[in-house]
């Protein structure tokens, strides 16, 4: 019997995402695609799939999945989610092999907003406009363009289960830059006086609760325009930061409209889009101005790290209870590295 992923339960915001749509922005169709492209790619790489293969994107609403028909390995990567296989906790970036009857649960954890579940094998749903990426506002991608629900079954072709596991994913890409969110000014930074550009960069900005796959709204100092706030609509790149009349920035994300009519003060650089996406309502941030050359260099570095082999570390110890470990006196050896004797 052919393998399939079954959704046992799903909060809001569980969707299928691949690279995103390409070539239809000119017809008004949004790109969609993963909110955190790096995490999406790492999950796919960890199970040996092409980087931009279809995967599940899970929001903090969480999901529970099982396989049917045949076993399949899956990789998880993204924010610090609470992952558990049949109740057994696993690290946020891991590879497990699901046997039919097992239950994998993905729940909101300490930090982060998006987690990717990439199966070893191809999720078979019909592409719409060349992509399976779900854009719920225009009902494109996934299953009927809607979020996934309990009872949905996603067929897997070429499912592989030979990876075994569970493993923790070890990758240099999991260590991200921890400074401000880096931006390139423009394309309409000339709608803002220098002191407003400074105020924009300095913030601090709080991620608003009115944030979703389309846009992250920010709250902070009120920005003023020097040339009004209406422009004749032009194109919108992912990460474009619009400042409408109320003076509070809106960062346009994966599900953004392809064009729009507010001045865009700056654009978040590619490698920081995923970092921003993983922030939660209430988190604070500031921006750092960089050049196109710096942004390209950061991108090059990330692309290089992503080509390095993904190391999978067997998770043997998590099968042992802490009492057992204490009994063996192994804990001293583990903690010694973190707390050197003074």
């Amino acid at each position: 019997m052919r393998a399939a992923l079954r959704i046992l339960s799903a909060g809001p915001g569980v969707t299928t995402q691949d690279r995103g749509r390409n070539g239809y922005l000119r017809f008004g169709a949004s790109e969609a695609g993963p909110m955190d492209r790096l995490a999406h790619r790492l999950a796919n790489r960890a199970v040996g799939s092409p980087m931009d293969s279809p995967a599940l994107e899970v929001s903090n609403g969480g999901v529970e999945v099982a396989v049917e028909g045949a076993p399949a390995s899956v990789a998880l990567s993204g924010g610090a989610f609470n992952i558990a296989l049949d109740g057994r906790p696993l690290p946020p970036a891991c590879v497990v092999t699901l046997e039919p009857g097992m239950r994998l649960s993905v729940r909101a954890g300490a930090t982060g907003s998006w987690c990717y579940v990439a199966p070893a094998g191809q999720i078979e749903v019909a592409p719409m406009l060349g992509s399976i990426s779900t854009h719920t506002r225009t009902a494109l991608g996934g299953i009927g363009g809607r979020p996934l629900m309990a009872g949905d079954v996603l067929p897997l072709s070429g499912a592989r289960s030979g990876l075994g596991g569970p493993f923790e994913i070890v990758s240099p890409t999991l260590q991200r830059y921890d400074g401000g969110i880096r931006v390139i000014l423009g394309p309409q930074d000339d709608f803002f006086a220098p002191d407003q550009i400074d105020a924009f960069l300095h913030g601090p900005w709080v991620v608003s609760g009115r944030s979703d796959r389309m846009a992250y709204q920010l709250e902070g100092p009120k920005l003023t325009h020097c040339k009004g706030f209406n422009i004749v609509s032009d194109g919108i790149a992912m990460g474009a930061i619009q400042v409408p009349g109320v003076g509070q920035p809106v960062v346009l994300m994966a599900d953004r409209q392809p064009t729009g009519g507010y001045p865009k003060i700056a654009t978040v650089i590619g490698v920081d889009l995923g970092r921003l996406a993983q922030m939660r309502p209430g988190d604070t941030l500031h921006f750092e101005k960089v050049s196109v050359a710096q942004a390209v260099e950061a991108r090059r570095q990330e692309a290089r790290l992503l080509t390095e082999p993904v190391v999978l570390t067997p998770l043997v110890r998590t099968e042992l209870s802490s009492e057992f470990l204490l009994g063996l006196n192994l804990v001293d050896g583990v903690t010694a590295a973190e707390h050197p004797h003074s």
Partner: peptide
Amino acid sequence: YLDAGETALVVE
């Protein structure tokens, strides 16, 4: 020529 990040260029 206006930069919209490092992956998009606006020719206005």
